[in-house]
Amino acid sequence: MVLLPLLVGGRRDEEKSRAKERVFSFRDVNQTWDPKNQRPELWNLYNTRIHKGESIRVFPLSNWTEKDIWQYIEKEKLEVVPLYYAKVRPVVKRGENYILVDDERMRLNPGEEVEYKSVRFRTLGCYPLTGGTLSEADTIEKIVEETLHYQNSERTTRVIDQDGGSASMEVRKREGYF
């Protein structure tokens, strides 16, 4: 038997279909997730047995929150991608999100204008579907402080999560995303 787990950083506090995911999350031969028939996961015991072609996504950080992540980064002095820190950046406002105007790939819609705002990214996804958050937090300490007082949940800045209403993440996961 071949065990091919994929370790990933998804957390249950990110989004409500992720809140339903097991730590060891099973995918069938077509890479799809069957949320109505997940393997029971009791105590700290994980059933890692699979057949050829099936796979398992492992989410060791399932029970961490956004706040836990930043407190851990602060405690262990970990290096993180600069986009997590606030900085004045060229952006356009699209809906509720500030989308980064990075280079010529980013095409402006009629009527959109580039603004310069101090923004940071709470979550990094594909471009240009991830919005920045207005923020002055340019150090880890300030990010921790800011995270403790967020008014909106983390993935509100992901444009892709809003496609097709409140279940879009689940639809994509069933189709094999993540």
Partner: peptide, 23 residues
Amino acid sequence: LLDGLMAEREQGITIDVAYRYFT
């Protein structure tokens, strides 16, 4: 707020565990 699966909202029932975090 908690019934995160489509089937749950369609049927108005909870099928699987949802985990929530608060302080």
